[in-house]
Design a protein around this nucleic acid. Structure first.
Lengths: 237, 237
DNA sequence: GGTTGGTCTATTGTCTACAGAAGACAACTG
DNA sequence: CAGTTGTCTTCTGTAGACAATAGACCAACC
C-alpha cells in the first residue's frame, strides 16, 4: 500500500481559499489581504502567495500590481463568456464521450453523485457545491479529454464562486435534493447512450434562473452580452 | 499619459522561463531546479516559485511534490487533446467573430502580423514564435471572448513549447517567410467576411506536417488518440 | 474653501535562512 | 558477489525579516 505524501501548504491554502470563496466569506469585489489570511490559515506568506497565483490563473481572484488582490467581480459580459464557453465544452465532451466506452469512468460519476446526495441530505452547502463541480467534471471526463475537463472545471468554478450562487441557493432551501435528482436523471440519460438525449437534458439542466434580472445585479454590459441575453430569453422560456 | 508600473520579478521570471522553453534551452522532460534558475535569472526563489506555479497552471511544467519540477513531456494523447480542443475553440471563435464587427480588434491582428513579418525577415526565431502566438490570439480575440482567447493561447503555447517545434522549424529554414504569407492570407480571408471561408483556410492552416511519424517520437498512445490520428490521416492527405 | 504638499501607516515585493525530505553513494553483511 | 542499510548531499518547503510603494490623513498655503 502506497502512503500518500502529506499535502503541501500551497495545496491546503488553495483549498482553504476556495472554501472561503464558496462559502461567501470572501465576496466578489472584496479585497484579499495577505497578512490577514496568513493569520487565519496559519500559513506563512510565500505559500499563500503561490496559492493566490493559482487562483488568479483560474480567474477567481484578480491581482493589481502593488495594490493587492481582489475577488473577481463578474460583469454581464463575463457571464456571457462563461455560459457560452461552457455550453460548447459540454457539447464537445458529450460528442466524444457518449455513449460511454470506458465503464470505469462512470464509477467516478456515480461516486460524486452519491457524495452529492449525502451532502444534500445533510444540508452541507459547501459540500454540495464541491460535489456538483466534481460530478460535472466527471461527466465531462467521460470524454477522456483532460484538458477539456480542466477548462470546464475552471469555467464552472468561476461561475459558482463569483456569482454568489451560494446565497441564492441558500434562499431556496428545498432545491437541494431536487438538484440531486436532476443530476441523477442526467447520469441516467448518459447511460442510455444517446448523445442527442444528453444534449437535450443538458439544455434544460443549466441553472438559468439566476439570469433573471441579471442586468441589474452586475455591470459591464457589452453589445455581445446584451444580444446574447436577448437570444437566451427568447429561445429558452 | 499613464505611466506603466515596473514589471514585477514574478512577471519577468515567467517571461524568461517561457523564452527558455521556446528557445529549447529547457527541453521536455528536463528537470527544472530552482536554485539553478535563481542564479541564471538573478531572482530569488519565492518569485521564481510563483512564476513556476503560473507555468504549471498553463500545463507547461509539471510539479511533483518534494521531487521537483519538470518540463511537461507530451504523449500522443496530449497532442490529440491539444489539436482537437484547439480546433473547437477556433470554430467557436470564427462563428462569433466573423464577419468582424469591431474594426479596432483588427488593428491588433495587423500589428501582430507586421511584427511577425519583421521577426521572420530578421531571422528572430523566438520572436517569430511569440508573434505567431500573439497573431493567432488576436484572431481568436476578434470574437470579443476573452476566456476563449485565453484558453486558446494556453493550448497553443503547450503545443509550441513542448513539441520541440522550434527545432523542427529551424530545420526547414525557408518556411519562415512562407509562414508569414500564410498568416497574411488568413487575415485577408477574415476581412472578406465569410465564416465558411475562414474555416476552410484554418483547416489547411494547421501545421500538420509535424504529425508525420509522431507515434514513434512520443509515448502515451491512448485508444482515442490512435483512432483520431487514423482519422486525421485519412481525411487530410 | 479648495488644493497642494508632506508624512505616516498599512500592505505588498523580495531576500535570506533554516528545516525536512528524496536520491545517491558507499560500506557492511549474508 | 549481491542485497541491504546507513549516511551524506542536494534540493524543496516554509518561515521570518527587510525594503519599497501606495493610499490616507493632516496641515499649510493660495
Amino acid at each position: 500500500m502506497r502512503i500518500e505524501a502529506p499535502p503541501s501548504m500551497v495545496q491546503l491554502a488553495t483549498e482553504a481559499l476556495m472554501r472561503m470563496l464558496l462559502s461567501g466569506k470572501l465576496q466578489p469585489g472584496d479585497r484579499v489581504v495577505e497578512n490577514q489570511l496568513t493569520q487565519e490559515l496559519g500559513v506563512s506568506r510565500p505559500p499563500l502567495r503561490e496559492a493566490m497565483r493559482v487562483l488568479e490563473q483560474q480567474g477567481l481572484i484578480t491581482q493589481q500590481p502593488r495594490r493587492g488582490a481582489f475577488v473577481t467581480r463578474l460583469t454581464l459580459h463575463d457571464i456571457y463568456e462563461i455560459v457560452t464557453l461552457r455550453r460548447e465544452l459540454e457539447r464537445m465532451a458529450v460528442d466524444l464521450g457518449v455513449p460511454v466506452r470506458e465503464q470505469s469512468r462512470l464509477q467516478r460519476c456515480h461516486a460524486a453523485l452519491d457524495r452529492h446526495g449525502d451532502c444534500a441530505r445533510s444540508g452541507d452547502w459547501i459540500g454540495v457545491l464541491e460535489q456538483a463541480v466534481e460530478f460535472h467534471s466527471s461527466v465531462i471526463g467521460l470524454s477522456g479529454h483532460r484538458r477539456l475537463e480542466e477548462a470546464y472545471r475552471s469555467i464552472q468554478l468561476q461561475m459558482l464562486l463569483c456569482m454568489g450562487m451560494n446565497r441564492q441557493a441558500r434562499a431556496s432551501g428545498e432545491s437541494l435534493v431536487d438538484d440531486w435528482a436532476r443530476h441523477r436523471r442526467l447520469l441516467e440519460v448518459i447511460e442510455s447512450g444517446s448523445p442527442e438525449a444528453v444534449h437535450a437534458e443538458l439544455a434544460g439542466h443549466g441553472e438559468m434562473t439566476f439570469l433573471d434580472g441579471i442586468e441589474d445585479r452586475v455591470g459591464g454590459h457589452s453589445p455581445e452580452s446584451l444580444a446574447w441575453l436577448k437570444r437566451v430569453r427568447e429561445g429558452d422560456t
